[in-house]
Design a protein around this nucleic acid. Structure first.
Length: 263
DNA sequence: CTCCATGTTTAGAA
DNA sequence: CTTCTAAACATGGA
């Protein structure tokens, strides 16, 4: 799940539970997943300190706690879940945070491909990681400049976190579907209308998914994501969807709605 | 058992 | 230099 819309949803959850409240309890259920501090130092820096704000860049979530920040990256299947009354932690729990108003958040992460880290400053981390600007909130000029003259496929380009941050495999398919562009097209074959269309599609797909709280069941009926599985049909033309490997990843598209064109 | 999976990094080849 | 591919990471589900 965790691409920009998912992480934006996790951020809302974090903001509601944590901002303005002190951490009254914290447990590191899988300390080997922690970076940037020893478990003991991490506990000292977090416990009893207030969360003052949250931040997201691309697929990274940050929470300001005390004098530093907690960074979360969700890998393939990480999540941030609100827990009910105390009980057994969910499967794959890496860490739990309880806040003064009584909410408890669990960072879960069964496949361990992401991480939790103690960091000094999100902007520095974003720079170190080499992330491009946030995919949501880009102005058209920045988008166009960053896309220009690329010979790489547009699916690969949109997923390149150094180019723009936040779009992964699922939403790159969604964006190209809305733009009516075949995933193997390259940026240098796009005419100005197609580039504009791709920009509009990116906004539409990401904003729509954020409004749906990244839940496919809440997404508009013309979204590809709920149909991105074997046996499903194009929500626009009703035809059979095609599945293949593009940019080394599993790709779904509708051949009539997303023609190859010149690319 | 095999194959596949929403992410990232790295090595090596065009 | 850009781009692509495969592999690796760790784990779970079909």
């Amino acid at each position: 799940m965790p691409e920009l819309p998912d992480v934006a949803t996790f951020r809302l959850r974090m903001a509601r539970a944590a901002v303005g409240h002190a951490v009254t309890a914290m447990s590191l259920d899988r300390p080997e997943q922690l970076r940037g501090a020893t478990p003991r130092a991490f506990a000292d820096r977090v416990r009893g300190h207030a969360c003052t704000r949250t931040h997201r860049h691309g697929k990274y979530l940050f929470a300001a706690i005390g004098r530093g920040w907690v960074e979360l990256h969700f890998g393939m299947d990480g999540a941030l879940e609100m827990l009910g009354p105390p009980g057994a932690p969910p499967r794959g729990t890496v860490a739990r945070f309880r806040f003064a108003e009584g909410d408890t958040l669990a960072f879960t992460h069964p496949r361990r491909l992401g991480h939790i880290a103690w960091i000094a400053d999100p902007d520095t981390r974003v720079a170190e990681t080499g992330l491009g600007p946030n995919a949501l909130g880009l102005d058209r000029t920045t988008f166009t400049d960053r896309l220009a003259d690329r010979r790489a496929g547009i699916k690969a380009s949109r997923m390149d976190q150094a180019n723009i941050a936040g779009v992964g495999n699922i939403y790159s398919d969604e964006i190209l579907f809305h733009a009516g562009l075949h995933p193997k097209r390259t940026a240098d074959t796009l005419d100005p209308d197609e580039t504009q269309c791709l920009f509009a599609a990116l906004q539409e797909a990401l904003q729509g998914a954020v409004r749906a709280r990244a839940d496919p069941r809440n997404m508009p009926p013309d979204f590809l994501l709920p149909h991105r599985t074997a046996g499903e049909h194009c929500p626009s033309c009703g035809g059979a969807l095609q599945h293949g490997t593009v940019a080394g990843r599993s790709a779904w598209w509708c051949p009539p709605c997303q023609p190859r064109g010149r690319g």
